[in-house]
Structure formats: structure tokens, C-alpha cells
Amino acid sequence: MAISRETIEYVANLSRIQLGEDELKKFSDQLAAILDFIDKLKNADISNVSPTSHILPLSNILREDAPKESLSASQALANAPQERNNFYIVPKAIE
């Protein structure tokens, strides 16, 4: 299956990754080859087979909503690229 430049640009935008010109070309070719290989899955008979997203028989693990020990604001912010008054500073999200 061929992967067009537009498809790679579309997926890169969904992934929020800026790609260079050389990467656009290279990834189109490589993803096409990988997807050709993956097409092998079309040979598997999956009629009446349910999907496995997880192998343990667990679902909806809940706990009491009670306060517990947690990170302090200064610990939580220790790795922040930019912070002020106990808040993360990020570029503007709305114009």
C-alpha cells in the first residue's frame, strides 16, 4: 500500500510532530513497506473472534476517593521548563 505525502503530513499533524522534507519522503517509503508486511494479517480468519486488548481478567479497578500522600507543588514543578507562582507557564493556547 502506497502512503502519500499528504497522508504522512496528516498523520504527523495528528501526532504533533514537525517533520523535515527528508523525513516526509523517508517515512512515506518505510511506512508503506511496513504496512505491506502487516497486510499479512488479512489472511487470518478472525470471524467470531473477540478482540484482546488486555490479557488479565480485570476491569474497572476502583479505590476509595480519599486524600493520600502526594507530591508537593515544588516537587511537581521541579522539572518544569517554565513556572511561576506554582503554575506551569506554557505558550498561549488561544489567540
Partner: peptide, 26 residues
């Protein structure tokens, strides 16, 4: 903000990381 994400991730991830994120997103 969105431009910041794109450029940060474009620069911060190596080739295999980008390849897998693109494939998984696809």
C-alpha cells in the same frame, strides 16, 4: 502552543520514535 508541541517533538524524538508514533497514529 500547537507549534511549540510540533517543534519540541520534531526535535526531541529520534527517527525510530517518530516512525512508531506515526505508524501507531495511522
Amino acid at each position: 502552543l500547537i507549534e511549540s508541541y510540533k517543534q519540541t517533538r520534531g526535535e526531541g524524538f529520534g527517527q525510530e520514535a517518530k516512525r512508531r508514533i506515526l505508524l501507531g497514529t495511522f
